[in-house]
Nucleic acid binder design. Structure first.
Lengths: 330, 330
DNA sequence: GAATGTAATTGAAGCGCTTCACAATATACC
DNA sequence: GGTATATTGTGAAGCGCTTCAATTACATTC
């Protein structure tokens, strides 16, 4: 930077001003300095800047599992909001390992990031906030944390939406597939389903716990249902996840005695690629991943700009129903 | 850090030594200093360290598209190698946008990262290397670049593997689906297929260009093939991607006059989740994503440790054939 | 033309660490 | 005991920037 100053015939501080506060510098000086910068191929040193300024203008996003596109969507939403304020975003992948979550958080705090967005592993609590050196932190996809902003999705409402949709198209013998004890969001979804069922007099609900929510589990359950006498089959199935629904559709759809959706209508959850690539496209509940990221970033920027006046908010976003052929012929 | 030194009753430099070169410090001093560190909740400032030391110990990975699990695998492989040398890894998502690729590279160079791993957008060239301030850079999944290390996969061999497999199970009327003009890797795969076909006297090859390689295109092509007279149908199909193969399997598999794999065997490419979640699991060519990341990180670390003696390497990894039910009954 | 105000520029003082020449202390050997 | 050799510990210099009080240049106004 000194070389740039010398070459442009100005002082060190002026170069800094050209870079950070151009409105404070005269037009002609800006040009001189910028010419010198490009002639010298000057690359500013952010480490020095972060040190001198006490904070960087980069925000770190720690993601529980990058192989899950839901989280990638959040990152994308966060980035688009950050870009508007020309703030940089870097990511770190927790890869479902608790130790990496901790080390990634440490890393970003040590780098004196302007702020951190964290999509935590299940079971996050406010202990993740301790040890922080004042770096603002917003939680993604987790509502149950005090002492910080959180942005999450209303899973109970998602379950309610799915069930209401099935009830609306005349289904009365509903089946929920997925283990509510396995994950809090699944339990929430089930509660929403139960609420919807309670609202309709002659509707019934059966719950079948699957060990996981993969396609394989859906197929197993599919064979089970196909082997039942017709009268004991459900006429509407709410799967706790799209892959589970996919497995169900694969098996039930290839049974000649069962028509989808006439005999059995099926809904998934998440709006995975699996849902729309299926031979029978699957009705699903779409989670607003990008929106989560965008809202969280907005909250974080607000906290960064006004750390004193900031009050922690808990934003809950609504999922939406995406109707496809697995519940409704087009 | 000064406070830590004071509290531990040692000099500033000693605290630094405890953190960076504990072997130079006596056992008792280490303990004193560490106690002070934890009592004071001291969080080292990496910005200052990077400035003073002239380089950080974190490596930046710029990924063309994080929603593609192939790239996420690379990141994972890179991280696991970096972790062995306790080097940190942060990611940036290009999200298929050229401008973001440039800005992410800038960012990492300005941060004075120890090195950069870049999975570039199609059409990368060595211009991405100019303007770099000596930051070592290794290209992922791209072979055609001079002046830097590259790690890529042998797509020609992948195509050869797929075709050889079909020929080995007795198929002679092969069909390649996918547009070689659309992407260089697809053209490479086709070349491999052609080579394999040339090696077998009575084998023939038909090429059908699909606009894209999505499931939808596979379905369209599937209907086309199903409508042909039996004698004009291929008995082996090599799809340029798994989703394309999935679409084919969905349509051909539900046609009562066609059995998979007896009448038509189908291979995909990439080993996507789509391939193994299919009702008929799809034979595919697996790309060693994690290995690409691991090898690239190893090369990068080598270059960082010995910038002078380093010679750029072009590592080409081999894909592997994964046989599933779409070509072979189990 | 002097007084006043505003805009542009300067340069020195740090930011929190690493590094390194040097000093202090301990250990080994003759 | 004295000298050489490790082993530890010290603290000042400086990494490349931001910031800000102080200075200078230039326009207005009366």
């Amino acid at each position: 930077m000194e070389d740039v100053a010398k070459r442009a015939g100005v002082a060190l501080g002026t170069v800094s001003n050209v870079i950070n506060r151009p409105q404070k510098v005269s037009r002609s000086t800006i040009e001189k300095v910028q010419r010198a910068i490009s002639e010298l191929g000057f690359v500013p040193n952010r480490a020095a800047r972060a040190l001198a300024a006490g904070t960087s203008n980069t925000i770190g996003v720690v993601i529980a599992d990058l192989s899950n596109s839901f989280f990638v969507d959040m990152a994308r939403g966060a980035e688009s909001v950050a870009a508007e304020s020309s703030i940089n975003v870097v990511l770190a992948n927790t890869d479902m390992r608790r130790s990496k979550q901790a080390s990634n958080l440490d890393l970003f705090r040590q780098e004196r990031m302007a702020g951190i967005l964290l999509a935590p592993l299940p079971g996050a609590d406010s202990s993740l906030l301790t040890g922080r050196n004042g770096t603002p932190l917003v939680f993604l996809n987790d509502a149950a944390i005090e002492g910080a902003c959180t942005v999450s999705v209303d899973n109970e409402h998602g379950g309610y939406l799915a069930a209401t949709h099935l009830l609306a198209i005349g289904r009365r013998r509903l089946l929920f597939a997925g283990d509510p004890a396995q994950a809090v969001p699944i339990a929430d979804r089930l509660r929403g389903v139960e609420r919807a069922v309670r609202e309709v007099v002659d509707a019934s609900l059966e719950v079948i716990r699957t060990p996981e929510v993969q396609a394989e589990n859906g197929r197993t359950l599919g064979f089970d249902i196909a082997s039942r006498p017709t009268s004991e089959r459900p006429d509407g199935i709410i799967a706790a996840a799209d892959l589970l629904a996919l497995g169900l559709v694969q098996i039930l759809g290839s049974d000649p005695s069962i028509r989808i959706p006439e005999d059995i209508a099926i809904t998934g959850y998440d709006n995975n690629r699996a849902a729309w690539e299926s031979l029978v496209p699957i009705t699903t509940i779409a989670q607003p991943g990008e929106q989560i990221g965008a809202v969280a970033m907005a909250l974080l920027l607000e906290e960064i700009r006004d750390p004193e006046g900031h009050e922690h908010a808990h934003s809950v976003l609504e999922p939406t129903l995406v109707v496809r052929a697995s519940t409704q012929r087009t």
